[in-house]
C-alpha cells in the first residue's frame, strides 16, 4: 500500500500541474539538430533475416553539413538510471552505417553473441521455453561539425527497439506507412501554392489530416486467452515554424471521434518551412513523411 500511496502522490502532483503551461518552446518546433524517428524494416525479424534501420534526422541550421552516424545493437534494460545507457558504446554490436541507415544480419548478431559469453545464449534455451519474441535495442548517435556559434560538435542520440521473432507462428508486425497529408480538406500537393508546395498566409490556421496506406492498421492477438486487438496509430508532428495545436494525434479504430487531425497556425515570418509527420503503431513500427510549406504575408500586412 505504501507504493500505491507514493504513486498517488505523484499523480496528485501531475493533476495539480495539469494546467500549467511549459515555459519552453514546444517539442514540435525543430530549431536544431534533432532525431525525429528511427524505423526498423521489418520491425519484427526472424532469426535468419536482415533488418534495415533508417533514421529521420532534421538539421535546419546545418545547411547541408555532413553528419556522422554511429549504430550499434545493445544489450541492456532501460531503467531509471538512463546515464548507464552507453548505446552505442563499448561492448555493443556495432553496425556499419549506410548514409542515414544501417543493416543488421541477424545470423551475424547471433554468431557474435555466441562469442561474448553472455549469460543468455540465444542458441540454447537451457531446457526452458524461449519466448516467442525477444526485444532488442539499437542505439544511434548522430553528430555534426560545430556551427559558427557552437564550441564543439553537435550530437544527438536515440534508442530504438526491434523484435526478434523466434517462432514463426504468429504473423509479424509491419511498419505503418503514410499515404499523404491533407490541408484544409485538399491533398497536400493540390493545395494552393507553387510547385506543389502549399502557400499559407502568415498567422493563418489550417486543418491537417494524415492519410495512411491501407493495411497500416493491423490486427494482432494479445493477452491470455488471446484477444484480437487492432493497432492504434499515433502521429507526431514537427515543423521548423508555426504552432501545432496538438503535439501528437491518434487514429484509434475504436473511437468514433476523429483524433487524428491537427491544426497548424502558420508562422508570422514569411519563408519556407519544413514539416515532418511520423506515424507509429504502438508495436515498434514506424513510418514518416517530410514536406514543406511556404508562408506569405497576410493581405493586410503591408498596410
Amino acid at each position: 500500500m505504501r507504493t500505491a500511496l507514493r504513486i498517488g502522490a505523484v499523480l496528485l502532483a501531475c493533476a495539480l500541474a495539469g494546467g500549467c503551461d511549459s515555459p519552453f518552446p514546444d517539442e514540435t518546433l525543430v530549431e536544431r539538430l534533432r532525431l525525429l524517428a528511427v524505423a526498423a524494416e521489418p520491425p519484427e525479424a526472424g532469426v535468419t533475416d536482415t533488418l534495415a534501420f533508417r533514421a529521420l534526422v532534421a538539421d535546419p541550421r546545418g545547411a547541408g553539413r555532413p553528419l556522422e552516424y554511429t549504430w550499434a545493437v545493445c544489450f541492456l534494460a532501460i531503467g531509471y538510471a538512463a546515464a548507464d545507457v552507453a548505446c552505442p558504446g563499448p561492448g555493443n554490436f556495432p553496425l556499419e552505417a549506410e548514409g542515414d541507415g544501417a543493416r543488421l544480419a541477424v545470423p551475424e548478431l547471433v554468431a557474435w553473441l555466441m562469442e561474448q559469453d553472455l549469460p543468455v545464449d540465444p542458441g540454447d534455451p537451457g531446457g526452458g521455453e524461449w519466448p516467442e519474441v525477444v526485444t532488442l535495442l539499437v542505439g544511434l548517435e548522430v553528430s555534426g561539425p560545430p556551427l559558427a556559434d557552437q564550441d564543439g560538435p553537435e550530437r544527438v542520440r536515440a534508442l530504438k527497439r526491434f523484435h526478434l521473432r523466434l517462432s514463426g507462428q504468429a504473423s509479424p508486425n509491419h511498419n505503418p506507412a503514410l499515404a499523404g497529408l491533407s490541408l484544409d480538406g485538399l491533398p497536400w500537393d493540390e493545395a494552393p501554392g507553387p510547385n506543389g508546395v502549399p502557400e499559407l498566409q502568415a498567422g493563418s490556421e489550417h486543418l491537417l489530416r494524415p492519410e495512411v496506406l491501407a493495411g497500416s492498421v493491423e490486427t494482432f492477438s494479445e493477452g491470455e486467452p488471446p484477444e484480437e486487438v487492432q493497432e492504434t496509430l499515433l502521429f507526431s508532428w514537427f515543423s521548423t515554424g508555426g504552432e501545432f495545436r496538438d503535439q501528437r494525434t491518434l487514429l484509434d479504430p475504436l473511437l468514433y471521434e476523429d483524433l487524428a487531425k491537427n491544426r497548424l497556425k502558420a508562422p508570422e515570418e514569411p519563408g519556407r518551412y519544413d514539416l515532418w509527420l511520423v506515424v507509429r503503431d504502438d508495436r515498434l513500427g514506424a513510418g514518416w513523411l517530410q514536406t514543406a510549406f511556404e508562408v506569405v504575408p497576410a493581405p493586410d500586412a503591408g498596410d
Binding site: V38, A82, V85, R157, A158, L159, V278, A286
Partner: peptide, 14 residues
C-alpha cells in the same frame, strides 16, 4: 536520449 519508440526523451542524470 531520444526514445524513438515512445517519441519522448530519457533524461541523463548527473
Amino acid at each position: 536520449i531520444y526514445d524513438a519508440d515512445y517519441d519522448t526523451y530519457l533524461g541523463i542524470p548527473g
